[in-house]
């Protein structure tokens, strides 16, 4: 008789999540530092303040599920199963990374493993996840879930509207996670939408909607776990609105001086990592020494991975095949140069 794996307790899941959050935060700090040293080509976009939501999103998924992370999902990507080297190689432009220097910063993925490589156009990944889910349906794989991660800014796009309506019409097992971090670049919520809460939109699409505190890890784990279970059991798309605050600029080029100081001291302005550590230590689930040890291990792991990434070669333009088509016979090679 095979062992039946028991559902992990919320405490065990929280500890697992916390360790990914610590690595994500350490990695963020390292990227910020490398950016300031001029070691990174292009922009750097951090996940600070969104780690709890991000990690809970990925931990709600099972093998075979689909995941479309967005700009601030370092914790979720790691929890979904990617290597620490992937973000580092992508930011450093390593030829050995998943994007081989052809695309950079937050635009990496492993589509063969169900983790999509985002494009910059907001809202555009939602219908891609729906396509993956429709493929599963047509292939007779009925128990998988797809999770797409967006921010408050993406909710204003036509792509968001089209995709959520489409997923609702098809009753796809889509979990659409909106990290409402109060600002889309510098644009505050009151210049982004006029409804009282984004969750009010759920009824208009005919989908289940839930609004919750994105700064509390346990809440994120419970809400997203339930949402994925509902989607998996055939209850259709789930619109999940998490309220939190981006604890950094849009990118590291942005000092975020426009952020309302009152927000920083409000519930949404709490640092989800600090909140998670405090609650888990207070409940004696972990000790402060555990956390310090995990953090120091995370620093070691990140330093080692960055050192490796920095030793690796970048792409060689003279060995690049410069082919945007996989069908070699259809590639035009005779452009006048």
């Amino acid at each position: 008789m095979a062992f039946v794996e028991a559902e992990p307790t919320i405490e065990l899941l929280s500890v697992k999540a916390l360790r990914f959050m610590l690595v994500s935060r350490v990695l963020d700090d390292k990227f910020a530092s490398l950016y300031r040293m001029g070691k990174i080509h292009g922009g750097v976009f951090l996940s600070r303040g969104q780690e709890a939501l991000s990690v809970a999103s990925a931990l709600s998924l099972q093998p075979g599920d689909l995941y479309a992370p967005l700009i601030r999902d370092t914790a979720g990507r790691l929890a979904f199963g990617e290597s620490l080297l992937d973000p580092i190689r992508t930011y450093l432009g390593s030829a050995l990374g998943p994007m081989r220097g052809r695309d950079g910063n937050v635009h990496w993925g492993h589509p063969r493993l169900g983790m999509y490589a985002m494009i910059s156009h907001l809202g555009a990944m939602i219908s891609v996840v729906s396509g993956g889910l429709l493929a599963h349906r047509l292939q007779g794989r009925r128990s998988t879930v797809g999770l797409s991660s967006v921010g408050d800014g993406a909710t204003s796009t036509g792509a968001f509207h089209e995709a959520l309506n489409q997923a609702a019409v098809e009753q796809l097992p889509l979990v659409l996670v909106v990290a409402n971090n109060c600002y889309a670049y510098s644009t505050p919520n009151n210049r982004q939408f006029a409804c009282k809460s984004l969750v009010d939109r759920a009824v208009g699409y005919g989908v289940k909607g839930v609004e919750f505190d994105g700064t509390d890890l346990e809440t994120c784990l419970r809400e997203l776990g339930s949402a994925a279970a509902r989607a998996r059991s055939g209850q259709g798309p789930q619109l999940m609105i998490a309220n939190l605050l981006r604890l950094c600029g849009h990118g590291e080029h942005d000092d975020a001086s426009y952020v309302d100081p009152n927000l920083k001291t409000s519930q949404v302005g709490r640092d989800c990592l600090e909140v998670a550590i405090r609650k888990l230590v207070d409940s004696k689930t972990v000790t402060a020494e555990d956390v310090a040890l995990w953090k120091s291990r995370a620093i070691d792991d990140v330093e080692r991975a960055v050192a490796q990434g920095q030793r690796e070669p970048g792409p060689d333009p003279y060995r690049e095949d410069w082919s945007a088509l996989s069908t070699e016979a259809l590639v035009e090679r005779n452009w006048p140069q």
Partner: peptide, 20 residues
């Protein structure tokens, strides 16, 4: 499909990556 050309083509991308 609904009248949603963006979502139609996004869905096609996801389905194509998914083996269809």
């Amino acid at each position: 499909s609904p009248i949603s050309e963006d979502a139609m083509l996004g869905l096609a991308v996801g389905a194509a990556i998914g083996g269809m």
